[in-house]
Simulated scan of single mutants.
Amino acid sequence: MTTNGSQQNGPVGDVPEDANEHCPGTQSERAGKAEACAGCPNQQICATAPKGPDPDLVDIAERMQTVKHKILVLSGKGGVGKSTFASQLAFALAGKDKQVGLLDIDICGPSIPKMLGLEGQEIHQSNLGWSPVYVEDNLGVMSIGFMLPDPDEAVIWRGPRKNGLIKQFLKDVYWGELDYLIVDAPPGTSDEHISIAQYLKATSVDGAIVVTTPQDVSIIDVRKEINFCQKVGIPVLGVVENMSGLLQPLSSLKFKSITINGDEEDVTAAVLQEIQRSSNLLQSVYTYSEVFYASSGGAEKMAKDMKVPFLGRVPLDPGLSRAAEEGRSCFSDGSCKLSASYLNSIIGKIQCTVEASADSSSKV
C-alpha cells in the first residue's frame, strides 16, 4: 500500500534517518506534504526546501576537478582501526611526494586531528575557501575536530545537519592540486555514507577501502558495508584485515610470575637474561598470538566469497598504536617497522590499482 504515487518507484532524493515510514524523499514534489509526512520532525524543512537536482553538486564537481584520486576508507564496525589506517595511508602517500588531503567526515567521533598531531589547531578562511590544516606542505587535513571549542564537547546533530557540513567540506575547502584525497568515514552505512556517496559519485571517486578485524562480529558488519558500496555504485578497491594477530619481538615482551592467589611478580629481566644465555638466535624471534578468533576464515575468505580484492593483513603492533596516539607517521622511524612493512605492501597495491585504472581511462 502506498500513500502517494512516488512510492511506486521508491523515494525521490535522500530519506532522513529520523523520517517516517513511507517517506517520499526530500526531493519529491510531495516532500513535507504527503500523508506519510504528518508528524515527521523534518516536515517543515522538506515542505519549504527547493526541489529538483541539488545545485551544490555542480560546485562540488568543480572544486574536485583539482583532485586526481578520491578514496573512501570505510568499516562496518567501530574500533577496527579504520582511522589509524586512513591516517597512515595519508602519511605514506605524502612520504612518496604525493600531494595528499585527508578529510574526516566522522562528525560525532573525529579522531583524525589527534592521529595527525594537530589537536588544538583551527581552520582559517581565505578568498578561495576554507584552508586545510597542514601537517607538511604536501599533507593537509580537514575535520570538524578543528571547529570544536572544547575537544570533549559532544556533537549531537541530526542527519540533515551532518549532511550539510559534509557538503560544505567538499564544496568550500580549498585543497589546491591534490594527487589523493582520503576520506575517513564513520562506521556503518548511515546518513554520512549516503551523502558522501551521492556527492562524490559525480566527481569520479576511485573507490573504497574496507577495514575489518578477523572475528565474525566484525566480518558480519563489513559484508553489509560492501553491499552498501555495490548498491550505491562505489567500487571496492579491497579489504584490509587489521589487528590480524599480535606480533612482537621476543625481547620486547614483559614476563610475570603469577601465584594461585593472583599475586604478581615482574620476572622480565631474569627471563630475558636466561633466554640470552640459552640462545642468541631467540633475540631475533617474533612471538605471534591470535587475539581475535577468525571462526569463519577471516577477511580473506569473506573477500573471496564476495568477489572483492583482499589487500592483506596488518598485525597488532604496539609501535603503531603509539604512533597513532602521538600523531606521527609509523614510517618515519624504526619504532614500528614491523607494521610499517605490512602497511607499505597494502598501500603499494592500492596505489598501483588506482593509478593503473587512471592510466587506462586516459587512453580510452
Rank of each mutant, 00 (worst) to 15 (best):
P11F: 00
V308T: 03
E122S: 13
L253Y: 02
L247M: 13
H124L: 06
K98W: 01
R161M: 15
V354N: 11
K201L: 13
V271E: 04
C336I: 01
Q248V: 14
T66V: 11
S289N: 09
I258K: 03
A323V: 11
M302E: 06
A38I: 09
Q88Y: 09
K114Q: 14
G79W: 02
L253H: 00
L170N: 04
M147K: 08
G39V: 12
S111Q: 10
I209E: 05
K254M: 05
Q230R: 14
L320I: 08
G129L: 04
I209Q: 00
S332N: 10
V155F: 06
G319Y: 08
S278W: 06
E225Q: 15
R223L: 10
D305G: 02
V232A: 01
L128K: 15
V239G: 05
E192Q: 09
D184P: 11
T353C: 12
R313K: 14
R277D: 15
T48D: 14
V291G: 01
Q7L: 13
S28K: 04
I144D: 10
L200P: 05
E122D: 05
A49D: 13
N280W: 09
N227T: 02
I105P: 04
S335F: 07
A61S: 15
M142H: 00
T26W: 11
S357N: 15
A358I: 07
S204I: 06
G117F: 02
A185I: 10
P315A: 03
W175P: 06
D263F: 02
G25T: 06
E35K: 13
V267E: 00
V133K: 14
